[in-house]
Design a protein around this nucleic acid. Structure first.
Length: 819
DNA sequence: GTTTGTAT
């Protein structure tokens, strides 16, 4: 069958001599191959092969199967649909092959010995009969095993790809599946085709169900229904943040999913039975009418138990008298040359005398200042040195532990306190491999401060709380109005709503100058309102009306005029919710790059990576954490050098980026770690602030526009905020909060007496109070009273004739940036 | 019809 598979198609057998491109995330590769044999009508000695494969070994031969095609720009290329490693059959080849890292423990000496005994076709002989290895003198059983399993493994790829192909997966997806399951692919997928949905990106329920059908799992088959139930719960958790689903909601969704995928009616009874069986198997948890994934159920229960324990200990944690603390605060104020406002001092006091407390407040209210204060006062009262180095000699570890859910937040925390800080993952010693419930490490620390708690999901919160020693003091810091965690749950929000953890809320804003209308607007947005004059220009903000098509032009004009006013491009940040479309991040980045860092005559050195062009001077954004280089996801830097392949020692293009003076070099293969940063997503900007923020809001973003997204975006602006786009969409986005409600039961577990959120809202003194008011307001004024009367929009007909900035409400480019 | 995080 293998023969037939090859003989029908054209192939190239050869040795890769140079990798032109390799994308490690999807395996898309372009390789120059020296041809040894081919059935193509092709005279050259070398050919460019394009397809999906892992990094190839330049010492080996490969057989590529596919078709010759003519690329408009790069000429003749061989599009490979499949490939396999050609088992070498020359003495030298076999020795090299056996001593490669595919066969750990086998060195050149052993390899030579094998070839000496079995001849140049040693590999073929071993594959036909593994026992021929017994003939080789002084070869240990271990080594024999190594060779047999490695050969088996290598053959695995071909076998897997052929099977996947028969199952209807193309080379790209096939490669991805193989990356996930390796030689176990066929076995694992035959057992359970539905695991593809959760484990291989790009495979949805329908696709996996199609494979299921081929494997005989059809219609009412319990495995099929169970898979659908689990998929729905997973999807609810991952895409909507729900910790559970009501059975009432789950069952019809499962029914619909199954009936859409195959035209067979699935009775509710079958689904209920599947749910019962899943619960018996421990694959889901039921509580009253709610259905949970076990990991989420046990996480919630675990968090609640630990938090209640800590809260209970709060009474015992009055370690210091108020006088002692106030005195220490005074000393710290003097030392650091700061003055704490009363609420800030109160927060420090609370932190010192609690086992657990929450410090909350909006952007610019000085949460970081208070963290620093807590650390300083804690050290003073406990007679501790804040010099971590001094602890290296001693037995006991440094007692203050600082952590945050993202690398960037951890870096900021460390910078603002002068103490080491790390990601929660690192703190817990994760390595990316472990399964749930596997971490059992206890955090070595007496004071544990977690910043940006609003971004910590239910799973991670559980791991974190589990690792907190019973005698530790915990300070959770965060702002529940910013974007919720990527993962399921809303732990900070639930903790606040339960009202059992001592909480200090900072409300006064120190970041903006007095009379800032940005912060005023932010406060209103938090309540679901918009200032009456939101489309008018104030001292620090403005709104330029424009359609989606005009956005690119308006944004570049604003950037240009801001720069002409002396602002640097580093201080100007364009924020948008999504990448695609005429007003998307990608397009805006290109336009702004053309404006501020062009290459009009084509003489400047540049490097092309995918759809992006990088030039010296470009503002770029780091996309992954690189703690060794002190660069983290979300950091912004500037390209300071581009070194072309021929100029470097390793014949590789290189880009050097300076992050505030810290220079980091990227090889071509690492360029997927950076992207242009003139415009970035609002999500990415969370936790950063900029002098000037330009934020387009148009209808094409509608799917993304929500209150907390807009709130997060506008609160990134320190001095100037320039909104542009469609005022109605801005207003509508601010009204949207309902669909981001996450189903969780943490609040109820912590405090069963607070049952109804509306009631909390009416009695509570925190943000919820505002919320409730806002909600009533919205209900009262169904017709948007807050939405001011708007001048007519520009139409598509008039737009191109008008300079984007001029004539709109009389705004000229110089109008909105006065001092 | 869409964004986002972490660990070798």
């Amino acid at each position: 069958m293998e023969e037939q598979y090859h003989s029908e198609k054209t192939f190239v057998l050869g040795r890769p001599i140079a990798s032109i491109f390799h994308n490690a995330s999807n395996m898309y590769s372009i390789v120059k191959v020296k041809i040894k044999e081919t059935n193509l009508k092709y005279q050259e000695k070398e050919i460019t092969v394009v397809g999906y494969f892992p990094a190839l070994d330049e010492e080996l031969h490969y057989r590529f199967v596919g078709n010759l095609s003519n690329h408009p720009k790069y000429g003749l290329q061989f599009q490979a649909e499949a490939f396999e490693r050609e088992v070498p059959a020359t003495e030298q080849g076999v020795i090299h092959y056996l001593s490669s890292d595919m066969f750990p423990g086998i060195g050149p000496k052993t390899a030579e010995q094998i070839v000496k005994t079995l001849g140049p076709d040693a590999l073929k002989k071993i594959m036909e009969n593994p026992f021929v290895l017994d003939e080789v003198p002084r070869l240990s059983e271990d080594k024999k095993m190594t060779i047999r399993t490695a050969l088996e493994k290598n053959l695995g790829l071909d076998r897997v790809m052929i099977q996947l192909n028969e199952w209807g997966f193309g080379p790209q997806l096939g490669m991805k599946i193989y990356q996930t399951y390796r030689e176990e692919t066929i076995e694992l997928l035959t057992q359970n085709p539905y695991r593809l949905i959760e484990e291989v990106e790009g495979v949805g329920f329908a696709r996996a169900d199609e494979l299921g059908r081929k494997l005989g799992i059809t219609g009412n088959h319990p495995d099929r229904i169970k898979a659908a139930v689990l998929h729905k719960l997973n999807q609810a958790a991952l895409s909507e943040g729900h910790v559970y689903l009501e059975a009432e909601q789950l069952l019809p969704e499962v029914k619909e999913l199954l009936e859409q995928s195959q035209p067979v009616e699935i009775p509710y009874e079958s689904i209920s039975n599947a749910v019962i069986e899943l619960e018996e198997e421990g694959k889901i948890c039921g509580e009253e009418t709610r259905i949970y994934l076990p990991s989420l159920y046990f996480s919630e229960v675990g968090i609640a138990t630990k938090v209640l324990q800590l809260v209970k200990k709060n009474e015992e944690s009055r370690n210091f008298s108020n006088d002692e603390i106030r005195k220490a605060i005074g000393e710290v104020e003097e030392d650091l040359g700061v003055t704490y406002a009363e609420t800030q001092a109160k927060a420090i006091e609370q932190a010192l005398n609690s086992s657990i407390m929450i410090l909350t407040g909006g952007p610019g209210t000085g949460k970081t200042t208070v963290i620093r204060g807590i650390v300083e006062v804690y050290a003073r009262l406990h007679g501790l040195s804040l010099e971590p180095k001094e602890y290296a000699k001693k037995e006991e570890p440094f007692p203050i532990v600082l952590a945050a859910p993202t690398g960037r937040a951890a870096k900021r925390l460390s910078e603002s306190t002068g103490l080491p800080a790390m990601t929660i993952h690192r703190l817990l010693g994760f390595n990316g491999q472990e399964k749930e419930e596997e971490t059992d490490r206890e955090i070595q620390g007496r004071l544990i401060i977690i910043d940006e708690m609003s971004m910590v999901d239910t799973w991670l919160s559980h791991q974190l709380f589990k690792s907190i020693p019973a005698e530790a003091q915990v300070v959770l810091v965060g702002d529940q109005d910013q974007l919720p965690p990527v993962g399921p749950g809303q732990v900070l929000k639930d903790l606040l709503a339960a009202k059992i953890v001592p909480t200090v809320e900072l409300t006064e804003v120190y970041r903006q100058a007095d009379g800032s209308t940005i912060i005023e607007m932010a406060h209103q947005i938090k309540k679901g309102q918009v200032p009456d004059n939101f489309t008018e220009k104030t001292g620090d903000r403005s709104f330029i009306k424009a359609s989606a098509e005009q956005i690119a032009s308006v944004v570049t004009q604003v950037v240009k005029s801001a720069m002409s006013k002396g602002q640097s491009i580093r201080d100007i940040q364009v924020l948008a919710p999504m990448y695609k479309g005429p007003a998307g991040i990608d397009r805006l980045n290109k336009e702004i790059q053309d404006l501020v860092n062009p290459n009009e005559d084509g003489t400047r050195k540049e490097i092309k990576y995918g759809d992006t062009i990088f030039r010296i001077g470009d503002k770029v954004l780091q996309l992954v954490n690189q703690p060794e280089c002190n660069v983290f996801n979300g950091d912004i830097g500037e390209i300071v050098a581009i070194i072309k392949a021929k100029e470097t020692v390793d014949k590789q293009d290189q880009v050097v980026v300076s992050f505030d003076g810290n220079e980091v070099t990227y090889d071509r293969g690492d360029l997927n770690q950076i992207t242009l940063a003139y415009c970035c997503s609002i999500h990415k900007a969370q936790g950063s602030e900029f002098q000037t923020v330009i934020m387009p809001i148009v209808r094409s973003y509608a799917k993304m526009l929500r209150r907390n997204l807009i709130y997060t975006g506008i609160t990134r602006a320190k001095n100037y905020l320039i909104l542009c786009g469609e005022p109605e969409e801005f207003w509508k986005g601010i009204q949207r909060t309902d669909d981001l409600k996450r189903f969780t039961t943490l609040r109820a577990r912590l405090n069963p007496f607070i049952e109804d959120e509306a009631e909390v809202d009416r009695t509570g003194q925190t943000e919820q109070t505002f919320r409730a008011d806002a909600h009533e307001n919205i209900l009262e004024h169904e017709e948007p009273k807050e939405m001011p009367e708007l001048p007519p929009m520009l139409t598509a007909e008039t737009a191109p004739k008008i300079h984007p900035m001029i004539g709109m409400d009389g705004i000229t480019p110089y109008d909105f940036l006065d001092e």
